[in-house]
Protein backbone atom coordinates (compact mmCIF):
# COMPACT_ATOMS: atom_id res chain seq x y z
CA UNK A 1 0.00 0.00 0.00
CA UNK A 2 2.71 2.39 1.09
CA UNK A 3 4.69 1.37 -1.95
CA UNK A 4 1.80 2.08 -4.33
CA UNK A 5 1.28 5.55 -2.88
CA UNK A 6 4.94 6.41 -3.14
CA UNK A 7 4.98 5.15 -6.70
CA UNK A 8 1.94 7.23 -7.62
CA UNK A 9 3.59 10.25 -6.02
CA UNK A 10 6.76 9.79 -8.04
CA UNK A 11 4.78 9.42 -11.25
CA UNK A 12 2.83 12.57 -10.37
CA UNK A 13 6.07 14.54 -9.86
CA UNK A 14 7.45 13.36 -13.17
CA UNK A 15 4.21 14.28 -14.94
CA UNK A 16 4.44 17.79 -13.47
CA UNK A 17 8.06 18.03 -14.59
CA UNK A 18 7.71 16.69 -18.08
CA UNK A 19 4.08 17.40 -19.12
CA UNK A 20 4.88 20.91 -20.46
CA UNK A 21 7.69 19.56 -22.61
CA UNK A 22 5.56 16.65 -23.76
CA UNK A 23 2.80 19.08 -24.77
CA UNK A 24 5.33 21.23 -26.61
CA UNK A 25 6.67 18.25 -28.50
CA UNK A 26 3.15 17.07 -29.31
CA UNK A 27 2.20 20.49 -30.71
CA UNK A 28 5.30 20.60 -32.86
CA UNK A 29 3.74 17.72 -34.80
CA UNK A 30 0.21 19.20 -34.83
CA UNK A 31 -1.12 19.81 -38.34
CA UNK A 32 -3.16 22.83 -37.25
CA UNK A 33 -2.27 26.40 -36.38
CA UNK A 34 -4.50 26.58 -33.35
CA UNK A 35 -3.66 24.98 -30.07
CA UNK A 36 -7.32 24.12 -29.55
CA UNK A 37 -7.53 21.05 -31.70
CA UNK A 38 -5.39 18.21 -32.99
CA UNK A 39 -5.19 18.50 -36.77
CA UNK A 40 -3.29 15.32 -37.41
CA UNK A 41 0.38 14.41 -37.44
CA UNK A 42 2.80 16.42 -39.57
CA UNK A 43 6.45 17.23 -40.10
CA UNK A 44 5.65 20.47 -41.93
CA UNK A 45 6.66 22.80 -39.10
CA UNK A 46 10.04 21.16 -39.05
CA UNK A 47 10.32 21.56 -42.82
CA UNK A 48 9.29 25.21 -42.63
CA UNK A 49 11.72 25.78 -39.82
CA UNK A 50 14.60 24.38 -41.83
CA UNK A 51 13.64 26.55 -44.79
CA UNK A 52 13.44 29.74 -42.69
CA UNK A 53 16.69 31.62 -43.28
CA UNK A 54 16.37 33.65 -40.08
CA UNK A 55 15.95 30.57 -37.92
CA UNK A 56 18.82 28.83 -39.66
CA UNK A 57 20.96 31.92 -39.12
CA UNK A 58 20.11 31.88 -35.43
CA UNK A 59 20.92 28.16 -35.28
CA UNK A 60 24.28 28.78 -36.91
CA UNK A 61 25.00 31.64 -34.50
CA UNK A 62 24.07 29.46 -31.56
CA UNK A 63 26.27 26.55 -32.59
CA UNK A 64 29.28 28.74 -33.40
CA UNK A 65 28.84 30.61 -30.14
CA UNK A 66 28.52 27.42 -28.12
CA UNK A 67 31.56 25.86 -29.77
CA UNK A 68 33.76 28.94 -29.49
CA UNK A 69 32.74 29.99 -26.00
CA UNK A 70 33.03 26.43 -24.66
CA UNK A 71 36.46 25.98 -26.25
CA UNK A 72 37.85 29.26 -24.96
CA UNK A 73 36.27 28.84 -21.52
CA UNK A 74 37.73 25.32 -21.30
CA UNK A 75 41.22 26.53 -22.17
CA UNK A 76 40.97 29.35 -19.63
CA UNK A 77 39.46 26.96 -17.09
CA UNK A 78 42.32 24.49 -17.60
CA UNK A 79 44.90 27.21 -17.11
CA UNK A 80 43.07 28.50 -14.04
CA UNK A 81 42.84 24.97 -12.58
CA UNK A 82 46.53 24.28 -13.08
CA UNK A 83 47.50 27.43 -11.24
CA UNK A 84 44.75 27.16 -8.58
CA UNK A 85 46.12 23.72 -7.79
CA UNK A 86 49.55 25.19 -7.11
CA UNK A 87 48.24 27.90 -4.80
CA UNK A 88 48.45 27.76 -1.06
CA UNK A 89 45.33 26.32 0.47
CA UNK A 90 44.11 29.65 1.87
CA UNK A 91 44.50 31.58 -1.37
CA UNK A 92 42.85 28.79 -3.30
CA UNK A 93 39.80 28.80 -1.05
CA UNK A 94 39.44 32.55 -1.50
CA UNK A 95 39.84 32.31 -5.28
CA UNK A 96 37.34 29.47 -5.54
CA UNK A 97 34.73 31.40 -3.57
CA UNK A 98 35.23 34.41 -5.82
CA UNK A 99 34.85 32.08 -8.79
CA UNK A 100 31.70 30.50 -7.42
CA UNK A 101 29.76 33.70 -6.82
CA UNK A 102 28.94 34.33 -10.51
CA UNK A 103 27.43 30.83 -10.71
CA UNK A 104 24.99 31.60 -7.93
CA UNK A 105 24.38 35.14 -9.10
CA UNK A 106 21.06 35.71 -10.91
CA UNK A 107 21.49 35.57 -14.68
CA UNK A 108 19.67 38.82 -15.08
CA UNK A 109 22.16 40.61 -12.83
CA UNK A 110 25.08 39.12 -14.75
CA UNK A 111 23.40 40.10 -18.02
CA UNK A 112 22.75 43.71 -17.00
CA UNK A 113 26.24 44.12 -15.52
CA UNK A 114 27.82 42.77 -18.68
CA UNK A 115 25.71 45.11 -20.79
CA UNK A 116 26.75 48.05 -18.59
CA UNK A 117 30.43 47.24 -18.76
CA UNK A 118 30.27 46.90 -22.56
CA UNK A 119 28.61 50.32 -22.78
CA UNK A 120 31.06 51.90 -20.34
CA UNK A 121 34.08 50.32 -21.97
CA UNK A 122 32.72 51.26 -25.39
CA UNK A 123 32.46 54.91 -24.34
CA UNK A 124 36.00 54.78 -23.02
CA UNK A 125 37.18 53.35 -26.34
CA UNK A 126 35.48 56.07 -28.38
CA UNK A 127 38.18 58.45 -27.11
CA UNK A 128 40.64 56.37 -29.07
CA UNK A 129 38.46 56.02 -32.12
CA UNK A 130 37.14 52.53 -31.47
CA UNK A 131 33.60 51.40 -30.83
CA UNK A 132 32.03 48.30 -29.39
CA UNK A 133 29.26 46.91 -31.55
CA UNK A 134 26.74 44.80 -29.65
CA UNK A 135 26.44 41.52 -31.48
CA UNK A 136 28.39 38.31 -31.88
CA UNK A 137 31.51 39.59 -30.10
CA UNK A 138 29.77 40.83 -26.99
CA UNK A 139 27.65 37.69 -26.72
CA UNK A 140 30.77 35.56 -27.09
CA UNK A 141 32.54 37.44 -24.30
CA UNK A 142 29.42 37.11 -22.13
CA UNK A 143 29.17 33.36 -22.70
CA UNK A 144 32.86 32.81 -22.01
CA UNK A 145 32.48 34.78 -18.79
CA UNK A 146 29.64 32.73 -17.36
CA UNK A 147 31.19 29.46 -18.58
CA UNK A 148 34.59 29.79 -16.92
CA UNK A 149 33.46 28.89 -13.36
CA UNK A 150 31.79 25.74 -14.68
CA UNK A 151 34.84 24.56 -16.59
CA UNK A 152 37.02 25.17 -13.53
CA UNK A 153 34.54 23.17 -11.43
CA UNK A 154 34.91 20.22 -13.82
CA UNK A 155 38.66 20.38 -14.36
CA UNK A 156 40.05 21.37 -10.96
CA UNK A 157 39.07 18.15 -9.13
CA UNK A 158 40.88 16.09 -11.78
CA UNK A 159 43.94 18.29 -11.53
CA UNK A 160 44.07 18.09 -7.75
CA UNK A 161 43.59 14.32 -7.87
CA UNK A 162 46.81 13.91 -9.84
CA UNK A 163 49.51 12.22 -7.82
CA UNK A 164 52.53 14.49 -8.30
CA UNK A 165 54.71 11.40 -8.42
CA UNK A 166 53.15 10.26 -11.71
CA UNK A 167 54.74 13.22 -13.49
CA UNK A 168 58.06 12.45 -11.83
CA UNK A 169 57.63 8.76 -12.61
CA UNK A 170 57.30 9.61 -16.30
CA UNK A 171 60.49 11.70 -16.15
CA UNK A 172 62.17 8.88 -14.28
CA UNK A 173 61.26 6.48 -17.09
CA UNK A 174 62.96 8.70 -19.62
CA UNK A 175 60.19 11.03 -20.77
CA UNK A 176 61.02 14.68 -21.38
CA UNK A 177 58.95 17.19 -19.39
CA UNK A 178 56.67 17.85 -22.40
CA UNK A 179 56.28 14.12 -23.11
CA UNK A 180 55.45 13.57 -19.45
CA UNK A 181 52.73 16.21 -19.59
CA UNK A 182 51.25 14.95 -22.85
CA UNK A 183 51.39 11.23 -22.10
CA UNK A 184 50.69 11.13 -18.38
CA UNK A 185 49.30 14.33 -16.91
CA UNK A 186 47.00 15.41 -19.73
CA UNK A 187 45.21 12.05 -20.15
CA UNK A 188 44.48 12.13 -16.44
CA UNK A 189 42.79 15.53 -16.72
CA UNK A 190 41.16 14.85 -20.09
CA UNK A 191 37.84 13.50 -18.72
CA UNK A 192 37.45 16.69 -16.69
CA UNK A 193 38.28 18.80 -19.73
CA UNK A 194 35.69 16.98 -21.83
CA UNK A 195 32.91 17.19 -19.27
CA UNK A 196 33.75 20.85 -18.65
CA UNK A 197 33.58 21.52 -22.36
CA UNK A 198 30.24 19.74 -22.77
CA UNK A 199 28.77 21.52 -19.77
CA UNK A 200 29.91 24.89 -21.11
CA UNK A 201 28.58 24.00 -24.55
CA UNK A 202 25.17 23.11 -23.10
CA UNK A 203 24.98 26.24 -20.96
CA UNK A 204 25.88 28.43 -23.93
CA UNK A 205 23.35 26.61 -26.12
CA UNK A 206 20.36 27.29 -23.92
CA UNK A 207 21.28 30.65 -22.38
CA UNK A 208 18.64 33.31 -22.90
CA UNK A 209 18.84 35.99 -20.23
CA UNK A 210 22.49 37.02 -20.56
CA UNK A 211 22.39 36.78 -24.35
CA UNK A 212 19.27 38.93 -24.40
CA UNK A 213 21.06 41.80 -22.65
CA UNK A 214 24.32 41.78 -24.56
CA UNK A 215 23.25 40.77 -28.07
CA UNK A 216 22.13 44.08 -29.52
CA UNK A 217 19.64 44.36 -32.37
CA UNK A 218 19.89 42.21 -35.44
CA UNK A 219 21.77 39.37 -33.80
CA UNK A 220 19.88 36.33 -32.57
CA UNK A 221 20.56 32.98 -31.08
CA UNK A 222 17.91 30.25 -31.02
CA UNK A 223 16.63 31.22 -27.60
CA UNK A 224 16.32 34.92 -28.35
CA UNK A 225 14.81 34.11 -31.75
CA UNK A 226 12.15 31.92 -30.16
CA UNK A 227 11.42 34.66 -27.63
CA UNK A 228 10.88 37.38 -30.24
CA UNK A 229 8.87 35.12 -32.54
CA UNK A 230 6.59 33.90 -29.79
CA UNK A 231 5.91 37.48 -28.71
CA UNK A 232 4.70 38.28 -32.24
CA UNK A 233 2.15 35.48 -32.26
CA UNK A 234 1.77 31.76 -32.43
CA UNK A 235 4.17 30.13 -34.81
CA UNK A 236 4.25 26.34 -34.65
CA UNK A 237 7.76 26.37 -36.16
CA UNK A 238 8.85 27.70 -32.80
CA UNK A 239 7.48 24.54 -31.14
CA UNK A 240 9.56 22.51 -33.53
CA UNK A 241 12.61 24.65 -32.83
CA UNK A 242 12.11 24.40 -29.06
CA UNK A 243 11.74 20.65 -29.36
CA UNK A 244 15.02 20.41 -31.23
CA UNK A 245 16.76 22.64 -28.70
CA UNK A 246 15.43 20.48 -25.86
CA UNK A 247 16.54 17.27 -27.55
CA UNK A 248 19.96 18.73 -28.29
CA UNK A 249 20.55 19.72 -24.69
CA UNK A 250 19.17 16.38 -23.47
CA UNK A 251 21.56 14.51 -25.73
CA UNK A 252 24.53 16.50 -24.44
CA UNK A 253 23.54 15.89 -20.82
CA UNK A 254 23.26 12.17 -21.48
CA UNK A 255 26.75 12.19 -23.00
CA UNK A 256 28.13 14.06 -19.97
CA UNK A 257 26.46 11.71 -17.48
CA UNK A 258 27.47 8.61 -19.43
CA UNK A 259 31.06 9.79 -19.38
CA UNK A 260 30.92 10.31 -15.63
CA UNK A 261 29.38 6.89 -15.05
CA UNK A 262 32.00 5.12 -17.13
CA UNK A 263 34.75 6.87 -15.27
CA UNK A 264 33.32 6.10 -11.83
CA UNK A 265 33.16 2.43 -12.70
CA UNK A 266 36.92 2.40 -13.29
CA UNK A 267 37.58 4.45 -10.24
CA UNK A 268 36.97 2.14 -7.34
CA UNK A 269 39.40 2.36 -4.42
CA UNK A 270 42.58 0.39 -4.98
CA UNK A 271 42.77 -1.17 -1.54
Amino acid sequence: MKKTISRIYVIFVFILLYAPIAVLIAFSFNNSRTRAKWGGFTFKWYLQMFQDAEIMGALRNTLILALLSATIATILGLMASLSLNRMKRRNRTVMLSVLNIPMLNADIVTGISLMLIFIAFGQFLTHYGYTIVFGFGTVLVGHITFNIPYTVMSILPRVSAINPSTYEAALDLGASPSQAFRKVVFPDILPGILSGFLLAFTLSLDDFVITHFVKGPGFDTLSTKIYTEVRKGIKPEMYALSTLLFLGVLLLLIVVEKGKGARNKNRKPAY
Binding site: N163, S165, T166, E168, A170, D172, L173, K183, P187, D188
Partner: peptide
Amino acid sequence: NTVFQKYALFTHMNIADNIAFGLRIR
Protein backbone atom coordinates in the same frame (compact mmCIF):
# COMPACT_ATOMS: atom_id res chain seq x y z
CA ASN B 1 64.80 4.20 -12.05
CA THR B 2 62.64 4.95 -9.08
CA VAL B 3 59.85 3.11 -7.29
CA PHE B 4 57.73 5.78 -5.67
CA GLN B 5 56.05 5.67 -2.30
CA LYS B 6 52.50 5.76 -3.68
CA TYR B 7 53.24 3.58 -6.72
CA ALA B 8 52.55 6.46 -9.14
CA LEU B 9 51.11 4.13 -11.77
CA PHE B 10 49.55 5.75 -14.84
CA THR B 11 45.88 5.12 -14.09
CA HIS B 12 44.62 5.64 -17.65
CA MET B 13 46.92 2.93 -19.02
CA ASN B 14 46.66 -0.80 -18.56
CA ILE B 15 49.43 -2.75 -16.85
CA ALA B 16 51.25 -3.66 -20.07
CA ASP B 17 51.32 -0.02 -21.21
CA ASN B 18 52.49 1.09 -17.78
CA ILE B 19 55.41 -1.31 -17.86
CA ALA B 20 56.17 -0.53 -21.50
CA PHE B 21 56.23 3.25 -20.91
CA GLY B 22 59.99 3.58 -20.55
CA LEU B 23 60.69 1.20 -23.42
CA ARG B 24 58.31 3.05 -25.76
CA ILE B 25 59.99 6.37 -24.91
CA ARG B 26 63.24 4.71 -25.91
